[in-house]
């Protein structure tokens, strides 16, 4: 068997291929790294700390690449990002304390799993419903083409923005929001992240859009900017105990960086409503996978863990395949019109 720097070439190719799949989703939705990588590594037989540590290092690398791209497009609000980091850090600490208290009572696993399913399923159902309504009120992930200044602010965010509590902060896009609102949303999302033990992109990004009214391209860019810090610090902490395995992270990152470019390019081709539906389906299938794993734990049926992973990987394959298919179909449908755009 051929080896590269002491690691099987087959394993490296597998990780690079898996990274490509995740990268397409990450580039398309601006999130979705850790909740795919860590469970897959666990099922492959890696120790839990290595699965989490390597997953964090991978998310760190991917977020660096994605943030660089969004920075080039002017879609990172650094002021908002730094405020969010402050609020999220405080929320994370409180969330961790809550989780530890539940662990002492022996309820952590059940409560966290139920909360995770409800949250993932709830956001998935909400986004899908908004998309199917087709009134433009849902998420718009077209990160390359949307003019942030002209982006539509959701009704909920408009109501929240109308409460003008001093001090008001001026954000990118020209609107002002109360500092306390930003810190409150950051704290709440950090609390959920700490409590659920997840990166929190799937909570924070919709929260920035629906609650603060940040245009989606800037919400995605700013969220990624924040993940650079949280992922970097997290991977440093895990690396100190030897839990970051470069033979996992390096090929995963090589594949995902390419996939992220393909995914980002696809956002400019696929219809917005389709994007929202895919996003909702991803979250709903993620919720289903966690529910199946939890039932497996309750009934002591380890096979359901494998079924859960199969659902996650199947969802990733299905959605990234659908994204790629939709993008290529769009490209082929009107070649002459698109050609002008491409060359411009």
């Amino acid at each position: 068997m051929m080896e590269i720097m002491g690691v099987s070439a087959t394993l490296l190719a597998t990780f690079a291929g898996f990274g490509l799949l995740i990268g397409i989703l990450f580039g398309f939705f601006g999130m979705g790294g850790s909740f795919l990588v860590t469970p897959a590594l666990l099922v492959m037989g890696y120790e839990p700390n290595v699965a989490v540590g390597s997953g964090l290092a991978f998310v760190f690398g991917t977020s660096v690449i994605a943030t660089l791209k969004h920075r080039d497009l002017g879609q990172v609000d650094y002021k908002l990002g730094l405020l969010m980091i402050a609020g999220t850090t405080a929320g994370l600490e409180v969330g961790k304390i809550g989780l530890e208290a539940l662990q002492h009572m022996g309820l952590a696993d059940s409560v966290v799993s139920v909360a995770y399913v409800l949250l993932l399923g709830g956001i998935g159902a909400f986004v899908t419903r908004e998309a199917l309504k087709g009134d433009g009120g849902g998420l718009d992930h077209d990160v390359d083409d949307v003019d942030a200044d002209d982006a539509e602010i959701p009704e909920i965010a408009q109501t929240i923005q109308s409460y003008r509590v001093w001090p008001m902060i001026r954000l990118r896009g020209g609107y002002t929001v109360s500092l306390w609102l930003i810190l409150g949303v950051a704290f709440a999302t950090g609390l959920l992240s700490g409590f659920l033990g997840v990166g929190g992109g799937f909570i924070r990004m919709p929260a920035l859009f629906y609650l603060i009214g940040v245009p989606v391209p800037i919400a995605v860019g700013t969220d990624l900017f924040e993940i650079v810090f949280s992922g970097g610090i997290g991977s440093l902490l895990y690396a100190q105990s030897g839990a970051v395995d470069l033979s996992i992270v390096v090929p995963l990152l090589a594949g995902s960086a390419l996939g992220a470019r393909l995914g980002a390019a696809a956002t400019a081709l696929v219809a917005e409503e389709d994007i929202k539906v895919y996003f909702g389906i991803m979250l709903l299938l993620g919720a289903l996978a966690v529910a199946v794993r939890q039932i497996g734990g309750l009934l002591e049926l380890p096979v359901l863990n494998t079924v859960s992973l199969a659902i996650i990987l199947g969802a990733a394959l299905l959605v990234s395949g659908a994204v790629t298919y939709s993008a290529v179909r769009e490209l082929r449908s009107v070649p002459s019109e698109r050609a002008v755009d491409v060359d411009a």
Partner: peptide
């Protein structure tokens, strides 16, 4: 351990930047 951790994170950071520039050029 600390130096190894810093080097590991540094390697990931450098790889990310190289991939960003490299794939950008290929694109």
């Amino acid at each position: 351990p600390s130096l190894q951790a810093a080097v590991l994170v540094g390697v990931v950071l450098v790889e990310a930047v190289v991939l960003y520039v490299g794939y950008g050029g290929l694109e």
